[in-house]
Computed example of a mutant assay.
Amino acid sequence: MRIRTILYLFLSLLFIFISITPVFAQEDEQALDLASDAKSALLMERDTGTIIFEKNANEPLPPASMVKIMTLLIVMEELAKGNLKKNEMVRVSENASSMGGSQVFLETGEEISVDDLIKSVAIASGNDASVALAERISGSEQSFVKRMNEKVAELQLKNTRFKNVTGLPAKDQYSTAYDMAVIAKALLQYEDITTYTSIYEDYLRKGQKNEFWLVNTNKLVRFYPGVDGLKTGYTSEAKYCLTATAEKNDMRMITVVMGADSVKKRNHATSEMLDYAFNHYETEQLFAKGDVIKTVPLLKAEQRDIQIVTGDSVRTIYKKEKPYENIKTHVKIEDDFSLPIKKGEQVGVLTVKDNNHVLSETPLIVDSDIKEASFLTLFKRTLENLSKAR
């Protein structure tokens, strides 16, 4: 492998790590008296990854059903790739229907749509639905769990290990408030996930004799304005957990609470973190996800000009009383491209600075597959260039 290719791969991995590594708030924020009833907690702004508050955020703890955030992340990836369709019918195995804990009472041999299975996981935390999706995607729950842990490694998370797709008690299954926030951040890149997690109530098999009432386990969806996800969790070991997200004034926050003694205390800790964020912070969007940053001519590509776009929304976050005064952006694009390039592949980075202080670094990607030009295409271009030179 050429040295340049090795260097490119190294830089790509580095940029991916940067893009998912949140910036911690200043020390004075860490003295905030928030989430006092939680064993561990964290408050993060979604787009910038800025952590506004954390409490024991890197302490490994049992995550209970918050495991399903990773389950849903892989499901959404499969939908985006076209490997899974929402209207596809999935046959429920005996293994899936036998899951204990929270369930939607799927029956062995029953056929149910992927869309309804996602609803069952996102709203009612159905363990049986989670396993049914895992088996459809990977063939077995354990194969799916292997993929979950591969995703953990891809996200550069050091304190998470999954043993199942449900969050049911399992030896050596653990995560942290920080890790759960990063997984939630990745899931929220799929914007339609909140169309599921924001539903307070719905029905499975509506109108049939065996219809089942789905009620959201996250009551803040109904009682805290702006909350539209994500996932609760409870076991006797983990106690009451919640990874939540809320959006107000075009600013989205992620909160994680682990180890609260009651639903009331869990919801209170979440609410006070959200209150603090929305009362004291604002964001400003510089670029939307998918905005064209630069068009680059590429002689050797089938498509002569390639568009380089933002891989995510680019924002700044600041305290309301302390806005930034000298925001500048810097675009770095790779000097040379190895063809072919797949849609979504990173080819550069957009850096946002306030004076010399780096506020964020966002991956720049190509917005379509870029194929190597055929001999005929290159020949035609050569003729065109010769004609223009005359």
Rank of each mutant, 00 (worst) to 15 (best):
L9M: 10
L14N: 07
F17N: 14
I20S: 09
P22N: 10
F24Q: 13
A35V: 04
S36G: 09
S36I: 06
A38I: 09
A38G: 06
M44F: 08
E45I: 07
D47F: 05
G49Y: 00
G49T: 02
T50H: 11
F53K: 00
A57D: 04
M66K: 00
I69Y: 03
L72M: 12
N83V: 06
L84Y: 02
S102E: 12
S102D: 03
V104F: 04
G109M: 06
I118F: 07
V121R: 10
N127R: 01
D128N: 09
I137M: 02
E141K: 10
R147C: 00
R147G: 00
N149A: 01
E150T: 06
K151D: 10
K151N: 10
V152A: 03
Q156A: 15
K158H: 14
T160K: 10
L168K: 02
P169T: 04
A170K: 11
A177G: 10
A177I: 03
Y178M: 04
A181M: 02
A181D: 08
I183K: 04
Y190R: 07
D192V: 10
I193T: 08
E201G: 03
L204N: 07
K206Y: 12
N210W: 13
L214A: 10
N216C: 07
T217I: 02
F223Q: 13
G226N: 00
A238Q: 04
A238L: 05
K248R: 14
R252K: 05
V257P: 13
V257D: 06
M258P: 03
D261A: 08
K264L: 12
K264D: 14
A269S: 15
T270A: 15
E272N: 06
D275Q: 11
T283D: 12
L286I: 12
L286D: 05
K289H: 05
D291N: 14
V292A: 09
A301T: 08
R304T: 09
R315V: 04
T316S: 06
T316K: 08
K319M: 11
K320G: 04
K328R: 15
H330F: 09
I333H: 03
K343R: 14
G344K: 11
E345I: 01
Q346L: 15
V349Y: 09
L350K: 12
T351W: 13
D354P: 02
L359F: 09
T362E: 07
L364I: 01
V366M: 01
S368V: 02
D369E: 14
S374C: 03
T382S: 05
A389D: 08
